[in-house]
Amino acid sequence: MAINQKCQYALRALYELSLHYPSGPVKIAHIAHSQGIPKKFLEGILGLLKSLGYVKSHRGKDGGYSLAKPPGQISVGEVIRGVQGPFSPVECIIGEDHCQLKGRCSFRPLWERAKAALEEVYDHTTFQDLLDQDKTPTEGERLESKGGSSDEPD
């Protein structure tokens, strides 16, 4: 299952709003610039995210968008489903009625395991997890803080 561009933009917009949670509304122009999303496209995506209950809009001079709930309460999986639809490596897992090999497909168990693996990763990753991940130092940063170099053996 490939994540389409619209869904990638939606995820990046929510990530940017997560960075600013709960400090206040973020302007569309800031989100667009920070995440490399075309502003016109972003307006529609934010409208969709608002209708799905992930963001709130704020009017006025200090207006913009903010998360409707904490980043730890929004999973990547639920957003993908809301924006793009159900997970499936192949269409027949979503609607078995369309399968010509219904009930006798040797690949079905494989497709179901792949679907379950996708769901496991996406559903168990929240936007707070992504924020925390970005705060975790890399191995090179840990070594540098200890006075070592990532090029030198221990």
Rank of each mutant, 00 (worst) to 15 (best):
K27G: 03
C99Q: 08
V83R: 00
H33A: 15
D129S: 09
G147V: 05
R142I: 14
P70F: 02
G140T: 01
R12V: 03
P109R: 04
P38Q: 09
K56T: 08
I45M: 04
C92K: 05
Q84S: 11
V121F: 13
R59N: 13
K40T: 15
G77F: 03
G72D: 10
D134R: 12
R104S: 12
Q35C: 13
Q133A: 14
A117W: 07
K135F: 09
S145Y: 01
E119W: 04
F127W: 10
G47A: 09
A114E: 01
R108A: 12
Q8Y: 10
G24T: 12
L101D: 10
A68V: 06
L46K: 02
D129A: 04
G147L: 05
K115E: 08
G85W: 07
P38N: 11
C99R: 07
G72F: 06
G148H: 08
E144V: 06
P137E: 07
S51P: 00
E120S: 13
L110C: 08
G147F: 02
L17T: 02
I74N: 00
A68Y: 01
E96Y: 07
T126R: 05
C7D: 09
K27L: 10
G36H: 09
S145G: 04
K146I: 05
I74L: 06
L143W: 06
G44A: 11
D123I: 07
P70R: 08
V26M: 09
P71S: 06
E120Y: 13
E141R: 09
E119C: 10
S57T: 12
H98T: 11
D132L: 12
K39H: 14
Y21P: 00
L14A: 08
P89G: 11
I94Q: 07
D97F: 05
